[in-house]
Simulated assay, not measured.
Amino acid sequence: MNKHIVLALGLLSLPTFASQSDFSWHGYVSQGLTQSKGSRAITDNDSITGELTEIGLNGYYQIAENISIAGQVNYLDGGNRFEQGARLDYLFIDWKLPDLPGKWQGQVHIGRFKNRHWLYSVTRDVPQTRYTSVLPQSVYFDGFRDVALGSNGIQTSFSHYGTQNIWELNWSYGRSNINDSQRDFLLGDEAKGDIKQDFVHQASVFWQPATMTWKLGASWLNSDFRYTPSQDDNRVAGKANIERFVVSGQYFAENWEVSAEIIREFQDSKGLFFPDFETKRRGEGGFVQFRYLFNNEVSGLLGYDTYVNNASDRDGKKLEAMSDGVIPAYFGYQDTYTVGLRWDIAPKWRLQGEYHWVEGATRVVSLLNLDVASHADKHWEMWSVQLMYWF
């Protein structure tokens, strides 16, 4: 990963050698205060912390008429939500295809590309493009932020702007590296081996009328993971398959907008805990958000997000019984109510705050952790205030 970050930084230094018309670069700095109360989702011991830092630098270099390179490096600190440190968000070659039949336009991304398949997947890495610091966890689960943001491989996108309709078709195939914190969420912090994503295969379609007041879409994801235990591991070799379906919708009016996504995902696991282990589960959820623009500088947000870990055990009582009470029932689901406020205090400066009321904790910690019950109460809260500047 470090060599990829160095390569991306080399891309960002290209203005020394390229004309201004060939190269552009931008960045952002964001710092805030945050707290989770009654939960270790963000902070421990109900403490207020400054672990809400995002610093990014991205660049775009035009190599030829239809070929360019784009990349971004990012430093991220979000408390317990994801691994702290620098990472390469994306670095890919962008090839704009020649004119296609039927007024279609197309492009191909090769390298570490950005996920284009959900409403906010392509913008979740940039703080000023998010309505809240913590996105709806049913779809945009922070524990897999780096894996879901993009993949190493190839992505194609085709769009058609007609007199009545706008269509967008996306397809991608690749894989991502799995860090230790993501491994621990899948298999618990007792796992000491290596987990790899064999592949992630995705496709999506979006439709808008020519007025662009509506946006509707659907996406599909299929991914295989493989685990190789270490010598002193209490896990065994195994594999897991995840299949995910998402339906998306947005409506835009002059002073307000509504966005929503629903998700259904299937997980099929074999091995991992003992040689003959096999389990299947179906998770379900989704969110709806309402945003209102009071004026050009101030807007507010109301949201609801829900997710159940197993659709056949929506209240988590089977989960609690199977674990002999070690895992409380409320770790089988998570419902979140959100209120947010955004204020553009000056050009390229923004102050954004949010408050979340949560019941349940299935997205807080791996259900395989020995001390899972210590990670959250049944009812808990989280909030943040974040100051952003971009250039």
Rank of each mutant, 00 (worst) to 15 (best):
A237E: 05
T156I: 01
G303H: 07
P347N: 12
G56D: 01
V308S: 05
V73T: 09
N2T: 13
V247N: 02
K239A: 08
D198H: 11
R116N: 13
P347T: 09
Q250D: 02
R350N: 07
R81P: 04
E243G: 07
V29K: 00
S299R: 15
T129D: 14
N310Q: 14
F158H: 03
F17L: 12
G303N: 03
K3H: 13
G10Q: 05
A237T: 11
E297P: 04
L97Q: 03
Y60P: 01
V385L: 11
Q105H: 15
T306Y: 08
V385F: 05
S312D: 15
G150E: 01
L186H: 04
S68K: 12
R183M: 09
N241G: 01
S323Q: 07
G188R: 05
D189Y: 14
T279L: 05
A191C: 06
I345L: 10
L367P: 15
I263L: 11
R183P: 00
Y60L: 06
H109F: 12
T49F: 00
V288K: 06
S151K: 15
R342W: 03
L88E: 09
H4I: 04
N165G: 00
H379R: 11
S323E: 02
E65V: 02
H160M: 01
E359G: 06
D142W: 10
H379M: 00
W118Y: 15
V298T: 12
I242G: 01
A373D: 04
L57R: 13
Q267W: 14
Y355G: 06
R350A: 10
V126Q: 05
Q164P: 00
T306F: 09
I63Q: 00
Q20L: 03
N74V: 12
T306R: 09
H4A: 13
W380K: 01
S269E: 11
L301Y: 14
T336Q: 11
R124K: 00
V134Y: 04
G38P: 14
Q334T: 07
R87Y: 10
Y307G: 03
N80P: 10
D268F: 14
E265V: 00
V326L: 11
N177C: 01
Q155E: 13
H117W: 14
R244Y: 01
W167H: 10
G217Y: 09
K196M: 00
R116M: 07
D146N: 10
S121M: 04
L11K: 05
V372S: 07
A346G: 08
K96M: 02
F144P: 08
F17M: 12
W167P: 02
E284R: 10
V122Y: 10
S366V: 15
Q107W: 03
R281N: 14
V247Q: 04
A191R: 05
L11H: 04
A64C: 06
P347H: 11
N74L: 13
F245H: 14
Q197L: 13
A203S: 15
S219K: 14
E54A: 01
W171E: 03
